[in-house]
């Protein structure tokens, strides 16, 4: 009897302690949750321009991020740095982000941004988004196994510069000379020019190279193109051009120059044609990779993704304005025809 009562005496406090532990855990849970909120992971976002031209890309990026379960302000913070078109500021901004020990640096919008981010850190993971070949730019050791702290998404924009020339010659089958706008400060410009010359050779065409790396020079390019006796103006793939689609469209209309660029924003803003990678997809995948890295995956394990979708936009209104008839071959190839 006495033994029994001892056993009960022991069982009592244990149960009580368990209950207290449980209650304590339950009480601590919201505390832990709020502590987690305080220590929200930070994504450093390095942008070459200002938020306005990036708006549609940011939407796609946040879409991708939310696919991995992260929502800005709820469980992840995004620290933005904008170069506002002055690409020389990119390295300093990247250093700033690296100094803040962000969880990952997102470097979208071209090779310049990716290279600036890489120069800032060798430890913080970097997710790039660009049109060029990261292998050739030396950003990664291999597409399937990037190896270092960089991975990202590439589109075919740079590779398809020559197709722009081809579409232009399709539109002007009798023209033999075309103007090409190139940003010589772009790391991919040399490669694109080489490809374009090769394509011109096989198509039997001549190229007039016009360079532009500032907004004032863009105006000069269009004026020169309109003064030359050329079939049309072909823009190489370059983020600097892509983010100025509205300006390019306005200039093209003003100077009456049939023009093709890489970004769909150009024909949407009133330009004639565009042919390039789908930036919505590439920025969405950038968001997915950023989320996966925040979740703990290593960039070296994430292969570089290529957005293989390339899209042709044709603006019939712009063609009418230029007095052009779009041949059926272009119309049947176009993914979107703006009427």
């Amino acid at each position: 009897m006495r033994f029994e009562s001892c056993a009960f005496g022991h069982a009592g406090p244990t149960t009580r302690r368990d209950v207290i532990t449980l209650i304590g855990a339950a009480a601590a849970w919201p505390v832990a949750a709020s502590a987690q909120q305080q220590a929200m992971p930070v994504i450093g976002y390095l942008g070459s321009e200002s938020p306005e031209p990036y708006a549609s890309r940011l939407v796609a990026f946040r879409d991708g991020l939310s696919e991995t379960g992260y929502v800005e302000g709820r469980n992840v913070a995004i620290d933005f740095r904008w170069a506002e078109g002055r690409y020389s500021r990119l390295p300093a901004l990247a250093m700033d982000l690296a100094a803040r020990r962000v969880a990952v640096i997102v470097a979208p919008g071209g090779a310049e941004v990716a290279l600036a981010a890489r120069s800032a850190t060798t430890t913080i993971p970097i997710v790039f988004e660009m049109g060029g070949d990261p292998l050739m730019l030396g950003l990664v050791a291999s597409l399937s196994r990037p190896g270092g702290n960089l991975t990202g998404v590439t589109s075919l924009s740079v590779e398809v510069s020559r197709k722009r020339l081809e579409f232009m010659s399709e539109l002007f089958p009798n023209a033999t000379t075309f103007a090409v706008a190139v940003n010589t400060t772009s790391p991919t410009s040399a490669l694109q020019l080489k490809n374009l010359h090769a394509a011109a050779d096989s198509l039997g065409l001549q190229l007039r190279i016009l360079t532009a790396s500032s907004e004032a020079e863009l105006n000069d390019v269009f004026r020169a193109a309109s003064e030359m006796r050329v079939g049309g103006l072909v823009f190489t793939s370059d983020p600097y051009f892509a983010y100025r689609s509205h300006q390019l469209a306005a200039l093209a209309i003003r100077h009456g120059v049939p023009t093709i660029t890489q970004a769909r924003d150009f024909p949407i803003a009133g330009g004639l044609m565009s042919y390039g990678g789908d930036f919505q997809q590439s920025h969405r995948h950038t968001g997915i990779y950023a989320g996966r890295i925040v979740r703990g995956e290593k960039p070296s394990d994430l292969p570089v993704q290529r957005v293989t979708k390339v899209e042709l936009f044709v603006n019939l209104k712009a063609a009418n304005g230029l007095g052009l008839a779009i041949p059926p071959s272009l119309l049947s190839s176009a993914d979107v025809v703006i009427e």
Binding site: D301, P303, Q305
Partner: peptide
Amino acid sequence: DISLVLRAD
């Protein structure tokens, strides 16, 4: 997970 395919590991 497309990265598994691309990694070809």
